[in-house]
Design a protein around this nucleic acid. Structure first.
Lengths: 245, 245
DNA sequence: ATTACTATTTCCCGAGTAA
DNA sequence: TTTACTCGGGAAATAGTAA
């Protein structure tokens, strides 16, 4: 007798028992297990284990067979399907690519974006690693909602394209991290998280292969959004975030 | 507002609600939904939806935020982890390769196995498709338990190596299906399900690249078993079966 | 040892309803 | 409309115990 995961706090006893049986292979073979053993593994009383076995059998989820002095238990098709349906639903949640949206308003920065992106050391890295020739400049976006702020924190962790800092003898230039995104849901772009940023955590800077203000006729205060596609949410990082309204 | 699967009969409301929220992406963004909408999707009352929201928040599975006249809801890390844990457990059940065991006793047949396996039309197909040079003969096994009988039915459906029938002008020879198995858990072998078998559904015939009776010193009545490894159990075929004791 | 009954408590659900 | 309270019926959990 192996396994059983005590990590499922909200799962009721019936479902727990089905899972426990499935974990022990009760769909390929009948298992011989006492109600008190089951109770121990499920963290409940022997009486409850007994009652639930009876109910599950009445509802066709399991089959019990008394052979001599031991009781053999196995899942029925219906019982296994119940678990399989649940599995399918959860799989569709966790295995589907996830989209994170940041929304905010355009604002004018100090114009430094142009200077930094134009530096060949940064320019070439962006071209190489991000995969497009950046328009020299960044679009500053002030995030609006609590959800967007939390998503920003998440994306800063996840950002997978490093831009290395460097020194030219006179001064050092800090590093940054990028993650690709779709500007307004369509235009190829990237969010750049600068190490030594002048802005707070409520701001993102966006680079793109085009002049975004021009292409979209943007003026300060205009609402824009960025979509970032993540692979999936199965990994146990916290993907707790939010979207602006 | 989309989805929700009404296929989870044994799942309680709390878990259903978490799933419903997750299906609607409430881990990347806050959702605005009324208790009566939730109730409708979950198939419960507005009162229950309200109560469960309160309880889930008290226990840290969700966060509620009243903004103006609408309530925003989202899963917390804890809430998403609860689902993720459940998903992980179910995944380990359904995605792990499954092993089916048939157990029974050796018995002597009519000696036809030798004749049929020796026919070059069968012999060559077995060599080609099953992947070994068959010893000319089959080992007959009388299955013992109800579990093994059901497993036999399952395997006959699953058997994936077809052996075609043929005609030599005088008479026709029926087809068969094979599935690879490990005899006594170690010896390469295959179970052959013959179309026009003389035996009942309580018997299997085994072929192998060696003389099994010789290698294992088998006499009629000796207990033997066969293990068949299946890919996984996610497909919605009934994998309800059993193993002999 | 085992299973499963009865009795008691505890918890859940939903109708009614207030705010 | 909305959320969420009270409260009654009933289901679920368990202690005690029989078989």
């Amino acid at each position: 007798m192996i396994q059983y995961n005590g990590v499922m706090n909200l799962v009721n006893l019936k479902e727990k028992l089905l899972i426990f049986l499935a974990q022990n292979g009760a769909f390929t073979k009948s298992l011989s297990m006492s109600t008190s053993m089951i109770a121990q593994y499920l963290g409940t009383s022997q009486q409850s284990a007994s009652r639930i076995l009876i109910q599950l059998e009445q509802n066709g989820y399991i089959e019990k067979m008394t052979v001599g002095k031991t009781t053999l238990i196995r899942l029925t098709n219906k019982g296994l399907d119940e678990l399989r349906n649940l599995y399918t639903v959860l799989k569709s949640i966790f295995e589907k690519p996830m989209e994170i949206v940041l929304e905010g308003r355009v604002f004018s920065g100090l114009g430094e974006g142009f200077y930094y992106i134009s530096l060949p050391q940064y320019f070439e890295q962006i071209k190489e690693r991000v995969g497009f020739v950046p328009y020299p400049g960044t679009l500053n976006i002030q995030l609006l909602s609590k959800d967007s702020l939390e998503n920003r924190m998440l994306l800063e962790k996840i950002a997978d394209i490093p831009i290395d800092g460097f020194s030219n003898g006179q001064r050092t230039y800090g590093g940054a991290k990028c993650i690709k995104a779709l500007f307004n849901g369509e235009q190829e772009a990237a969010i750049i998280f600068v190490e030594r940023s002048h802005y707070g955590k409520d701001v993102i800077e966006v680079i793109a292969p085009v002049y975004l203000r021009g292409k979209y006729g943007l003026r300060d205060g205009d609402k824009v959004f960025l979509k970032v596609a993540l692979k999936n949410t199965t990994k146990n990082d916290s993907i707790i975030t939010a979207e602006a309204k």
